[in-house]
């Protein structure tokens, strides 16, 4: 029993599009509207449509992807724990300051997942309580999963003092 996404689309002024691949339904929210619409949309999905679990949250960099219009995407995988129904919301963001609203106010579990997306892609989450790097060292200065991050470069494997035999 799938929810009626068309009604939702009209309610939000038709800013997002709906795609379907087999039983996998997605809402595509372009960067122009993501900043304003994402949080109300997810709130509505959680509170009125019963998608009460944020099963996953991940980032994508679409640099150089055919027909891509926006660069970064953050994917929110929602699950309705009553019906088992799944829905994916894909919100885009763009350079130079990719930013999206944080959903930690809706799902506290988004905290670390958003930190990871920030760490790897540099997408900032407005309203996040503690937006620090989570995997890379705190003084690392680039975002390694961006497509323009070179295979070798930008200060990785940097630098700790080597220990010598005599001093150790």
């Amino acid at each position: 029993m799938a929810v009626d996404l068309e009604a939702l689309r009209h309610r939000f002024g038709e800013v997002f599009t709906i795609e379907q691949f087999r039983d996998n339904r997605r809402l595509i929210l372009p960067a122009a509207h993501a900043a304003q619409t994402l949080l109300p949309l997810l709130q509505c999905l959680k509170q009125e449509y019963g998608f009460d679990m944020l099963a996953e949250l991940g980032g994508i960099d679409y640099l150089g992807y055919p027909n891509a219009t926006d660069r970064y995407a953050v994917v929110y995988g929602l699950t309705n724990t009553q019906t088992g129904e799944r829905l994916f919301v894909k919100a885009y963001a763009n350079d130079p300051q990719p930013e999206l609203p944080s959903v930690t106010s809706l799902w506290r579990g988004a905290n670390w997942m958003e930190r990871e997306v920030y760490d790897m892609y540099g997408v900032r989450f407005r309203g996040h309580p503690d937006l620090r790097r989570i995997l890379m060292p705190a003084d690392f200065q680039d975002f390694p999963l961006r497509k323009d991050y070179p295979l070798r470069g930008y200060g990785e494997r940097h630098n700790f003092l080597p220990l010598t035999r005599a001093e150790s």
Binding site: P150, Y154, G155, H158, N159, F160
Partner: peptide
């Protein structure tokens, strides 16, 4: 050098991007 935290005397240097 674009980003250079730390001391680059002895560890892996920053590299030229290959492409």
């Amino acid at each position: 050098l674009i980003v250079a935290p730390g001391d680059y005397q002895t560890a892996t240097r920053k590299r030229v991007p290959l492409n």
